[in-house]
Design a binder for these strands. Structure first.
Lengths: 248, 248
DNA sequence: CGCTAGCTTGACATTCTTCAACCGGAGTGG
DNA sequence: CCACTCCGGTTGAAGAATGTCAAGCTAGCG
């Protein structure tokens, strides 16, 4: 396969699109300089594996552009996605040098990597980084618990609707647009990856997508571009209560 | 109902059974004194609700004795447990004063509570508390991801076996006994609560328990006391690979 | 022009849920 | 002391949701 050239630029922290949402969000100028000193960019193509579970990982990273997935695989091949990292999300665990999950790029991806050891030193010394990391980890835990409700109790149709609403929302905040009325976005996942996210088979995903299309809840323009004519209509299908199931 | 008297004693930190596993694990004597100053004990009976989702929560806490469950409920009554807190686990989220989930005591329970505001100050000032909290939160996230694999991809039988092995293991480490050969413990959950944990109905839980009993994987002495004649046999039923699916 | 990867659709099999009956022990009131 | 009831648990029969297996479609690419 010819190495396609990825177009993500390498920027100064000051011009970084995730400057105010990632681990570095709270950093003062001097802390930022320390981070800048140990950072480097890596790009991946859609479909590439970043690390396998059990592999040594000598860096941690922020997702700058694109989407990465954490996946667990059972011996017999059953797979469950357990993390979906969008821009500003953090990859890797401090004080653990081996990956616990397979990590793959589900779209073209740019990571802002920090060498592990200096990053850990930074964590120990600059409170703004570790405070922000704690906050982000707590947010991820909340998201994981929402996801557990989806996996354990929602129907296939509710799972799909919930997934679409999650992507729509995160995409909208990133683009600084509202999630109301008509909303449109590209799916960052194949049907198979969606199935791994939702604990379904890809056939069930496909059928439920067709069903939502038939009922006018979504429109499909190509296989990956989704148009939601009325976001409230989609929300009605998620099984969540009106406020989106977000912390009361 | 006559108020039964709970027998959990209130001890000094130095004599605390979870001294070296809870948020306070890394604290030096002076930090411990600060914690001691803002702590107080609360006891709950099995079945009691500690807070409802959305309620104001003016404390955070460590579980000292017993078991607490975090549960999410959908409008139509479907319920999914999203957290199971055993001794040394942490309850509550710093910088959020409302509970995100229903919290109930599934057994008689003792909490070591810290008043929210002083605890948050402590977090900001004593690195040993916030470092430990980050570590515990990362562990919980790992546990949640293991749980997601269970919810999304395991069969009912595998779910039950996995649950039993989790409880057996945590019980064993608490009692400082090995998990090998014959292992015995009490279930801290009703069949219904197990169903909420596993994303099943209570009938399916009951049937699979009977099936594991019939096949000699477990023995039941009463409804709640479980004897596992051969722990490896149980592990074979969990669907995890030999090393227990723990981080490779 | 034909191949392949990603996706859709159909027919059938399986797992789990639903609804219902029943069991047994603990607590309660007559 | 006994009957009653309630709660947690078990078991059965029937049905629904989802998975499995298989065929076929379409867009993009060599």
């Amino acid at each position: 396969m010819a190495q396609r050239q990825l177009a993500f630029p390498q920027v100064e922290c000051a011009d970084c699109p995730i400057r105010h949402r990632a681990v570095c969000a709270r950093c003062e100028t001097d802390e930022l300089e320390q981070l800048e000193a140990i950072k480097y960019y890596r790009n991946y193509e859609a479909g590439q594996t970043i690390v396998w579970a059990g592999d040594k990982m000598d860096f941690v990273a922020s997702v700058v552009h694109g989407v990465a997935a954490l996946t667990q695989t059972m011996e017999d091949g059953r797979r469950q996605m357990v993390g979906l990292l969008l821009p500003s999300d953090f990859l890797g665990r401090p004080n653990r040098d081996r990956a616990a999950y397979d990590v793959t790029a589900t779209t073209d991806l740019q990571l802002c990597c920090f060498r592990r050891t200096p990053f850990q030193d930074l964590l120990a010394n600059t409170p703004h980084v570790s405070q922000r990391l704690l906050e982000m980890t707590l947010d991820e835990l909340d998201a994981a618990r929402e996801w557990m409700l989806l996996l354990g109790r929602k129907t296939a149709r509710e799972k799909i609707a919930s997934f679409l609403s999650i992507i729509a929302r995160r995409d909208a905040t990133l683009q600084q647009r509202p999630t109301a009325g008509e909303v449109a976005f590209d799916l960052p996942l194949t049907r198979e990856a969606m199935a791994d996210y939702l604990g379904l088979t890809l056939e069930t995903v496909s059928r439920q997508m067709s069903s939502l299309k038939k009922d006018g809840v979504i429109r499909l323009e190509g296989k990956r571009h989704i148009v939601i004519p009325d976001f409230d209509l989609l929300m009605d299908e998620t099984g969540d209560d009106a406020d989106g199931g977000v912390l009361a």
